[in-house]
Design a protein around this nucleic acid. Structure first.
Lengths: 141, 141
DNA sequence: GTTGCAAACGATAACGATTCTCAATATAGA
DNA sequence: TCTATATTGAGAATCGTTATCGTTTGCAAC
């Protein structure tokens, strides 16, 4: 239950937090901006202050429930932390985000950090390109 | 000469642009924010409008003279584009930035993008960890 | 060397994203 | 149920960045 997730994270169980967490778990799009979350909730009849959305996301991130990504395009997206690690590829035309995992790259990163004398704690790898989805190509003109 | 670099990039040679380019070439720190550049110039007696700094950096980037990076910390830094492509490793304790290049990773990225149907145009790989420089370790307490 | 004009400049207003403030409200434990 | 405390929402404030606009500059033709 979502309320348990909040409790386990040391957060009080409040209506806004539950709504936001539930949205993150049920949305078809795994990567959303704070604005998108705010808008989707509003469209669903759950008007939650934008400030509250930001606060909740910050708390969820601190608690390890979600992860925040800053793409070079400037957009900041949040995604539920579930399943194994992965990196991202972003379409520079339509903004679409996909995930991938590559064992070879993961391994090389560890080796590189070690060879430079770093204790690796995290990494961010994002590829940028143009996707071939019909929707994206259609809007090309 | 810096003025030639500007001319070759198709940019008019102006005092502000020259000052900024020269600073980028001579600064000890290769990775600077727009604010830092503005401040360093001001400290050196060269008061250049912040808007002009941003404009020049955008033009330099468009011309391929410099590269912009958005680190997950949120800061946006610019660095002179010289020498071959490389990625970054940032110390999460002291903020130190180092560069590295790995052929294996570069190659895998191309393969991954292709396999997902993307026309790869760019990528951002940043590792985060704790470095072992004496200065950094010293300030650990 | 002067002139003309487009491009670039600086100051500041505007902007979008995010954070802060504060009075009102809701949560969780006694 | 009551109370102390954390959380909320609305809007003001802030941050980094971009746009506006009147003035100045670079530079090519004269």
């Amino acid at each position: 239950m979502d309320s348990d997730e909040l409790r386990n994270a040391g957060l009080k169980v409040t209506t806004p937090r539950l709504k936001i967490l539930t949205l993150l778990e049920n949305a078809t799009e795994r990567h959303m901006t704070a604005e998108t979350i705010y808008r989707l909730l509003a469209e669903g009849g759950e008007v939650i202050g934008l400030a509250t959305v930001y606060r909740a996301l910050a708390q969820f991130e601190a608690a390890g429930l979600i992860t925040r990504h800053h793409f070079d395009s400037g957009q900041t997206v949040y995604e539920l932390e579930r399943g194994p690690h992965h990196d991202h590829i972003v379409c520079i035309r339509c903004g679409r985000v996909e995930e991938f995992y590559d064992k070879v790259i993961e391994e090389r990163q560890r080796e590189i950090a070690a060879s430079l004398g770093y204790k690796l704690s995290d990494h961010a790898l994002t590829l940028y390109g143009e996707c071939n989805s019909p929707d994206c190509l259609a809007g090309k003109g």
